[in-house]
Design a binder for these strands. Structure first.
Lengths: 102, 102
DNA sequence: ACAACAATTAGATATTTAGCTAATTATATT
DNA sequence: AATATAATTAGCTAAATATCTAATTGTTGT
């Protein structure tokens, strides 16, 4: 999960995921959308793969990437879930202590 | 939005947000939950503030932080929204081009 | 006024990260 | 076999990040 958020921290990588949402793309096709070198893109792909956000398959000389949407969903919803309303009782548990001695 | 994802990239900062979900806390109370120095925590708070994920108010010698849940929600849901199903037509627009000359 | 406390700022360092060019690997074409 | 193409690896650099200790600021209590 940490690796997912690390991966999402970079705007280029977030954009790659968005592009992949439209369907699988080759490394070259993805790289065409950015103003950075191929090796730099390769490094971004490696980060996305390490986070398990994309899968890759070699097809001839090309490498096709596809989005692993469920992994992205699980991370996003999983984290968001930590902030969901857990009972509408009081606004705060163990509220701010002033530290003043009684 | 970029600053939000940058802020979320660090596990300490994510945990701070989780703690703040329970209600406002002082810098010291938050710091008590981590094994790093106060100045380091101060730097983390600054990142969270820059991302507008928390607000702070000075109360005597203490500083009280509170979670800006709507900002977190907007970023998370906003990004997640980019991946929502947009019509169940075909699986892919502009599919993978092999690059083979016709 | 002074001491204690809470927090931040200053200043330094080590690690990680994003970027580049050049070289390499693997596949396909002629 | 030689050449071209797609991608990654190697090697480097600059910038950003997380961390620390020491010093400073601001506030409260004696």
């Amino acid at each position: 999960m940490n690796s997912v958020f690390k991966a999402l921290a970079d705007p280029t990588r977030r954009r790659v995921l968005e592009l992949l949402r439209e369907g699988p793309r080759t490394a070259g096709q993805l790289a065409d959308n950015f103003a950075v070198s191929k090796p730099t893109m390769s490094a971004h792909f490696a980060v996305l793969k390490a986070a398990d956000l994309v899968a890759s398959e070699k097809l001839g000389k090309q490498v096709v990437f596809r989005l692993k949407l469920s992994v992205l969903e699980d991370a996003l919803l999983g984290f968001a879930g930590l902030f969901a309303d857990r009972g509408t009782s009081a606004a705060s548990t163990t509220p701010v202590e002033t530290g003043d001695p009684a």
